[in-house]
Amino acid sequence: NKFNKELQWATWEIFNLPNLNEEQVKAFIDSLRDDPSQSANLLAEAKKLNDAQA
């Protein structure tokens, strides 16, 4: 299933962003679980936040 692979990839990527704190990671993962179809958008937002906090 396409969404499942995207969800797994986005989850792994978010867990490995070095500049997000635990609460931010949890919030993004919760959002992914709530709406897996938004995984690409949520990953992009997480990466933006990660870069901003570098």
Results as ranks from 00 to 15, higher is better:
Lys48Phe: 07
Gln53Glu: 05
Ala27Asn: 11
Glu23Trp: 12
Asp51His: 09
Asn21Glu: 06
Phe3Glu: 13
Leu49Val: 08
Asn41Glu: 11
Asn16Gln: 14
Pro18Ser: 09
Ile14Tyr: 02
Glu13Ala: 11
Lys2Ile: 15
Arg33Lys: 12
Ile29Met: 08
Asn21Leu: 11
Ile14Gly: 01
Thr11Ile: 15
Leu32Tyr: 02
Asn21Phe: 08
Ala44Phe: 10
Phe15Val: 06
Ser37Pro: 03
Ala46Val: 02
Asp35Ser: 08
Leu43Gln: 03
Asn19Gln: 04
Leu49Thr: 06
Trp9Ser: 06
Glu22Gln: 12
Asp30Tyr: 13
Ser39His: 13
Leu49Glu: 02
Leu17Gln: 03
Ser31Glu: 07
Lys5Trp: 08
Lys48Leu: 10
Asp51Thr: 08
Arg33Leu: 15
Glu13Ser: 04
Leu43Ile: 12
Asn41Asp: 07
Ala27Gly: 10
Pro18Gly: 10
Asn21Trp: 08
Glu13His: 07
Leu20Phe: 01
Gln38Gly: 07
Trp12Ala: 07
Ser31Gln: 14
Ser39Asn: 05
Glu23Tyr: 12
Gln38Ile: 06
Ile14Arg: 01
Lys47Gly: 03
Asn21Lys: 11
Asn41Phe: 14
Pro18Thr: 11
Asp30Glu: 09
Leu20Ala: 00
Asn50Val: 01
Trp12Gly: 05
Ala52Gly: 08
Glu23Ala: 11
Glu22Val: 13
Asn16Glu: 05
Asp30Met: 15
Lys48Arg: 13
Asp35Asn: 11
Leu42Asp: 00
Leu49Met: 11
Phe3Asp: 13
Asn19Phe: 10
Ala10Leu: 08
Asn1Asp: 15
Pro18Val: 07
Gln24Asp: 03
Asn4Pro: 08
Pro36Thr: 04
Ala40Asp: 07
Leu20Tyr: 00
Arg33Gln: 14
Asn41Gly: 09
Asn19Tyr: 11
Glu23Met: 09
Arg33Glu: 13
Glu45Pro: 01
Glu45Gln: 15
Ala40His: 08
Asp34Ser: 12
Leu20Pro: 00
Ser39Ala: 13
Ala27Ile: 10
Ser31Pro: 01
Gln8Gly: 05
Gln38His: 06
Asp35Ala: 07
Leu7His: 04
Ala46Asp: 00
Glu23Arg: 13
Ala10Tyr: 15
Leu32His: 01
Asn1Ala: 02
Gln24Leu: 03
Leu43Gly: 01
Glu22Phe: 13
Glu22Gly: 11
Leu7Phe: 09
Pro18Glu: 09
Lys48Met: 12
Asp51Asn: 10
Lys47Ser: 05
Ile14Ala: 02
Ala52Met: 13
Glu45Met: 12
Lys47Pro: 00
Asn50Leu: 01
Thr11Pro: 02
Ala54Val: 10
Pro36Phe: 06
Asn1Gln: 06
Thr11Ser: 07
Ile14Asp: 01
Asp51Leu: 12
Glu6Ile: 11
Asn21Pro: 02
Gln53Thr: 05
Asn50Arg: 01
Gln8Tyr: 14
Ala44Met: 14
Pro36Met: 06
Pro18Lys: 12
Ala52Ile: 11
Ala52Trp: 10
Leu49Gln: 05
Ala44Leu: 12
Val25Asn: 01
Asp30His: 14
Leu20Met: 01
Asn1Pro: 13
Asp51Pro: 01
Ala40Thr: 10
Asn19Lys: 03
Gln38Val: 06
Asp35Met: 09
Ala52Phe: 13
Lys5Ser: 10
Ser39Met: 11
Leu49Ser: 03
Lys48Tyr: 08
Asp35Leu: 05
Trp12Gln: 10
Thr11Arg: 06
Leu32Asp: 00
Lys5Ile: 05
Thr11Glu: 10
Ser31Ala: 15
Ala40Asn: 09
Ile29Asp: 01
Asn19Glu: 03
Gln38Arg: 08
Val25Ala: 08
Asn41Gln: 09
Lys26Ile: 10
Lys5Ala: 11
Ala46Trp: 02
Asp51Ser: 11
Gln38Phe: 04
Pro36Ser: 03
Ala44Lys: 12
Ala54Gln: 11
Ser39Trp: 15
Asn21Tyr: 11
Leu17Ser: 01
Leu17Trp: 02
Phe28Asn: 00
Gln53Gly: 05
Phe3Thr: 11
Thr11Leu: 15
Pro18Asp: 05
Asp34Phe: 12
Glu22Pro: 12
Phe28Pro: 00
Gln38Asn: 11
Asn50Phe: 02
Glu13Thr: 09
Asp30Thr: 14
Asp51Trp: 09
Ile14Ser: 02
Phe15Asp: 04
Asn4Glu: 15
Asn19Ser: 07
Asn4Lys: 04
Ala44Asp: 08
Ala44Gly: 06
Asp30Val: 13
Gln24Ala: 02
Gln24Pro: 00
Leu7Lys: 02
Gln38Leu: 07
Phe28Ala: 02
Gln8Trp: 14
Val25Pro: 00
Leu20Lys: 00
Asn16Leu: 07
Leu49Asp: 01
Ser37Tyr: 06
Leu7Val: 12
Asn16Arg: 06
Leu42Met: 07
Trp9Thr: 06
Thr11Lys: 08
Lys47Phe: 09
Val25Glu: 01
Asn50Thr: 01
Ala54Gly: 11
Ser37Lys: 07
Gln38Tyr: 05
Lys26Phe: 11
Ala54Ile: 10
Trp9Arg: 09
Leu20Ile: 04
Asn21Gln: 08
Glu22Asn: 11
Ser39Gly: 05
Asn21Arg: 13
Gln53Asp: 03
Glu23Leu: 10
Glu6Met: 08
Ile14Lys: 02
Pro18Arg: 08
Ala44Trp: 12
Ser37Thr: 12
Glu23Lys: 10
Ser37Glu: 07
Thr11Tyr: 12
Gln24Ile: 03
Asp35Phe: 09
Ile29Ala: 03
Asp30Ala: 14
Lys26Leu: 10
Leu7Trp: 08
